[in-house]
Amino acid sequence: MSAAEPRAAGGPRPPTCAIGIMAKAPQAGRSKTRLCPPLTPDEAAALSAAFLRDTAANIADAARSAPITAYAAYAPHGSEARVAAHVGARTGLVLADGTPPMPAGVQGFGRCLLHAIRGMLARGHAAACVLSSDSPTLPTRRLIEAAEQLLAPGDRAVLGASDDGGYYLLGLKAAHAEMFADIAWSTDSVAAATRARARAIGLPLVELDPWYDVDDAPSLSVLIAETGGYAAPVTRALLGRLERTGRLADRLAPA
Rank of each mutant, 00 (worst) to 15 (best):
T187Q: 02
Y167I: 10
G171R: 00
L172R: 00
L170I: 11
A127T: 03
R156D: 07
P204R: 09
Q149I: 14
S132Y: 13
A175W: 07
W185E: 07
A191L: 02
D182V: 09
V206F: 12
L121C: 04
L131D: 11
T187K: 07
A127K: 02
R199A: 15
A122Y: 09
S189N: 06
A181Q: 10
P204C: 08
I201H: 00
C129D: 10
P204S: 11
A177S: 12
D155E: 15
R118F: 09
A175K: 06
P210A: 13
W211I: 12
A147N: 00
L169F: 10
R118L: 13
I183Q: 09
G154W: 08
V190N: 02
L203P: 03
M120I: 06
I183N: 03
L205M: 07
D155Q: 13
W185S: 06
S133F: 12
T137F: 02
P136R: 09
L121K: 01
P153C: 03
F180L: 09
G166Y: 08
F180M: 15
A175N: 11
L150T: 02
P139L: 01
R141Y: 01
S133C: 15
A196C: 07
L169P: 08
R156W: 06
Y168C: 14
R123F: 08
A146M: 07
S189W: 01
P136V: 14
A175I: 14
I201E: 00
R195Y: 07
W211R: 08
S186D: 10
A128C: 13
A184F: 04
E148Q: 11
E148M: 04
A191H: 02
A192R: 07
V158C: 10
W211T: 13
V206S: 09
A161M: 12
R197G: 00
D182E: 14
P139G: 10
A192P: 01
V190S: 02
G202Y: 03
Y168D: 13
A192C: 02
D134F: 06
V206Q: 05
S135C: 10
G202W: 04
G171S: 04
A161G: 11
R141I: 14
A192K: 06
C129L: 09
P139R: 09
K173Y: 03
R197S: 05
G202H: 04
Q149K: 11
T187G: 03
R195Q: 10
A116V: 15
T137H: 04
T187D: 08
T194H: 02
A191Y: 05
V130C: 14
R142T: 14
G171Q: 01
H125P: 08
L138G: 05
L131V: 13
L170K: 00
E148F: 01
H115C: 15
A184Y: 08
A198L: 00
H176V: 14
R118E: 13
S186Q: 15
L150P: 00
M179W: 04
Y167D: 12
A192L: 07
L150A: 01
V158R: 08
S132A: 14
A152N: 04
R142N: 13
I117P: 04
A200N: 05
L159F: 04
E207I: 09
G202N: 05
H176N: 13
V206G: 03
M179Y: 03
A198Y: 02
